[in-house]
Amino acid sequence: MTNAVEIGNVSFTFLEQTVLEDVSLTIEEKDFIAIIGPNGGGKSTLLKIILGLLKPDKGEVKVFGRKPQNARDLVGYLPQYTHFDPDFPINVYQTVLMGRYHGLLKKYTSEDERMVLQALKDVDMLDYQDRQISRLSGGQMQRVLIARALARQPKLLLMDEPMASIDPEMQDAFYKLTSRLKNKMAMILVSHDVGTVSMHVDKIACLNRRLFYHGPAEEAGDGLEKIYHCSIDLISHGVPHRMLRKH
């Protein structure tokens, strides 16, 4: 069985600042893992390296045994949604259709159409397919963007700070969705908040330039204590220890 992601001794420097240092991480098929760390700790950079948007200075990255750029048909991506123009003239259906892009001059097929509708159904947004995106709430927009990622039928779903853009009451709906997707694909979620996330994911990786801990969330007792020590002033909010015991 090929692992979803294999990161070996990856380092990344940006503008003479070391963002990632000697990070090694293996993510198995159907893992649900949260990469947790402070802002500026290199989480999004690591995500972009897995996506093939950035190339590491050192080390190796394999996605399903391939180079990241060659594994794009297996990968779905939910970006932070802050970089959108909400006023952009596009509706929900067209937004999700982008997830089915095949290449230059290739038309979308009826198969693509079916996948888009299926993805919209998966996130309960089928009724909104004709709606312009500016008329969606934050939570609805996020579900549309998840549908766009799912429309590719990915084997690996990468989510960048999915909690940042939605109301607390939407978080339940989000985790319900991820628990439905859990058996279909590997999922990596990036978050700066260890609190609620750790109750829902299977594994946790703690990243602050270096990888401090990687392992199952429920067995994380001592390990988490250690990370918590390592980066106690970095992850200052949330009470991960107690949350995890409860889990």
Partner: peptide, 19 residues
């Protein structure tokens, strides 16, 4: 190139991710 132009206008990063 309408699909491509819409893609880069709306979300360049995602467009790159889908190839």
């Amino acid at each position: 190139f309408r699909n491509e132009f819409i893609g880069v206008s709306f979300d360049e990063e995602f467009s790159q991710v889908v190839g």
